[in-house]
Write a protein that binds this DNA or RNA. Structure first.
Lengths: 354, 354
DNA sequence: GCTAGTCTCTGTATCGATACAGACTGGATC
DNA sequence: GATCCAGTCTGTATCGATACAGAGACTAGC
């Protein structure tokens, strides 16, 4: 058994408090006594104050949770999520705080428990799918949190960092519409929960539950509505999961149909890259010329020449963590909208005349 | 103030133990009482047992630490580290364990404290630089750990997952030597602590402190010794930090010297990609034909056509976490050597005749 | 010589739970 | 009717520290 603080106190012949002070408040005791205590501790093999006991007494832990409402292992495959994490990490570093990554079991009951049991001082919630239940648990615990998806029911004092999804998406769609495209497919991850991969009919964009997806699809729809293309005329394609192969699989059949789309607007770069993969997989003579746009501007996008909407990933993570660790006095400052920019590359062009 | 377990007990009129059991051991009380207790808890807004208090009493935390002996934000920029993290995450997920990422302050004293204060049940130590001090602290705390760098002084019962760095590196160098290259540069990160970027003279490979780097350089040297090229004839180039720009900067001047190297063996893919960057940055007419090899086979390597040594990154992380969370009874099984493979791509070729 | 003030150090209360041994019921068993 | 047992619930000890008020000793100042 490792010795405790009490053991050190006994060995030196001082009180427990004094040993504690030797570690945590050196100014509270003489330098010589402190040295004697630390020496004794070394001799006994005392590993220093137990972090858990200390946290209990102090009332805080010194680490923040990062919550991905998806498989944790997925998060590391998503380049945007990784940049986000890097941002959180940079802020955590500055504050001397650790980051706790909490994997969520598939069953909601278990997932709730995982959030309840996380020893953290607050959460950065990175929203992949619906996360209301997670926010409920966090509120219940009375912990502060920062969300990255705008929610309709967010109360004014809830901190948030994100972008204007709708306007950003609109800029990409307007670019494509301006190039003359009218037969267009919209590709998004988990449009409806449990929907199968492939084309999907949804009465209106307001039926889409996930706010980020809904925001982006709304933006796409806005731009096309302006040029006279209604929601019903757009082909909505569902991808179950944000991955290149899933996107490639979901989109593949579309180009063999009569009157295939001349442009695909994807809800993320990863999906867009999957579309490019699907196109590249076809023999050269049977490869339609399709304009493709993504969203996020992950590092891979530039190499692939993908037209996309840039949003500052690392910044998002950094600010999320800063808002959590160093809350602004002014509630309004807790609501940060980051800038986005349309980045036009080679993957979009005018409609081919056939 | 959030209510405690005691408050719920008082409200229902049962003992604290019973409320605790309602949460942690449902079989210890009747279903009806349990319901009554949980109802009361809901009404009072009791957030469930305090994770810290629970950890203190139970004696374990339910999370494992991942230690990067470097900037935490750096870890997310290194594709190999990210794949490693994904592996750890996958294992953590399976075990219902969280991952704590602990940023280490630059000063060693502070860094020691960070490791001392981390509330975890064990550590996966991902070695970037010298980490002996970190292992010391972990041992002192009596926590289990898994290391990913073979150390000379590792005691038999210390768990480890890694590769045979020397043999793996040798395979790459043998390939290059086989192609006829004799004027060769070896590029490595932090060959000596605080050494400047660029060519560096080191008496022997055994002078290199970091075991991973030393292993790889030894392997390179082995293969060239076999074809009659001694250590002193190899150009050793130091890069302070494992990044593309740093590698490009460190190598740049080399190609303008008389008798420049015809091949560069890099200690990692990131460094090798930096070399390719440096070459690509030169005007086409002044771009020497240089063979380049990397190490790791990160995702970007394939796209760049980089010849490299593949090691299973995700597997490494996964196994590290498994060894920690589910220690093998047999000590020998706690020492895992993963397979490596030379992957020949376009970045290596025969020596150009000039 | 007396009051104040500064340095050190101590003692007690407390953080919020869980473990474990045992007490109490009520029914089954012989 | 005594014994046993399973099913429930309670009480006490404990996990390992920190906060905070206050006690002594010592130096200064007047």
């Amino acid at each position: 058994m490792k010795p405790t603080l009490q053991a050190v106190a006994d060995a030196v012949g001082v009180s427990r408090s004094t040993v504690s002070n030797a570690y945590s408040r050196p100014d509270q005791l003489s330098a010589t006594l402190r040295e004697r205590i630390l020496d004794a501790a070394r001799q006994l093999g005392y590993p220093g104050p137990n972090p858990t006991a200390r946290s209990l007494r102090r009332g805080f832990v010194g680490s923040i949770g990062v919550l991905f409402t998806s498989q944790l292992s997925y998060a590391f495959t998503d380049p945007f999520a990784v940049r986000f994490l890097a941002g959180v990490g940079a802020a955590a570093e500055r504050h001397g705080t650790s980051m706790l990554l909490v994997p969520l079991p598939p069953a909601v009951t278990d997932a709730r428990q995982a959030v309840e049991n996380a020893a953290v001082d607050g959460f950065c919630v990175y929203c992949v799918a619906d996360e209301e239940w997670a926010l409920d648990v966090i509120r219940q615990r009375g912990l502060p949190f920062v969300s990255t998806a705008a929610r309709d029911d967010a109360s004014a004092d809830e901190r948030f960092v994100g972008i204007d999804e709708r306007a950003a998406a609109r800029s990409a769609a307007a670019h494509v519409a301006g190039l003359g495209h009218r037969r267009v497919a919209l590709l998004a991850d988990s449009v409806l929960p449990d929907a199968p991969a492939g084309p999907l009919t949804v009465a209106g964009v307001d039926q889409v539950p996930h706010p980020t997806t809904r925001g982006r699809l709304s933006g796409f729809a806005d731009a096309f509505a302006e040029v006279g293309v209604g929601w019903a005329e757009l082909t909505l394609v569902n991808v179950p999961g944000n991955s290149r192969p899933a996107a490639a699989a979901a989109i593949a059949g579309l180009f063999d149909q009569p009157a295939p789309p001349t442009a695909v607007l994807a809800g993320s770069d990863v999906l867009a890259l999957g579309v490019l993969d699907a196109l590249a997989a076809r023999p050269a003579h049977d490869r339609p010329s399709v304009s493709v746009t993504g969203f996020d501007d992950v590092p891979e996008a530039a190499a692939a020449g993908l037209t996309t909407v840039r949003q500052p990933a690392e910044e998002k993570g950094r600010i999320a963590a800063e808002l959590l660790l160093d809350p602004p006095a002014d509630a309004a400052a807790g609501h940060v909208l980051l800038p986005t920019a349309l980045v036009v590359r080679a993957s979009t062009g005018p409609v081919p005349r056939s």
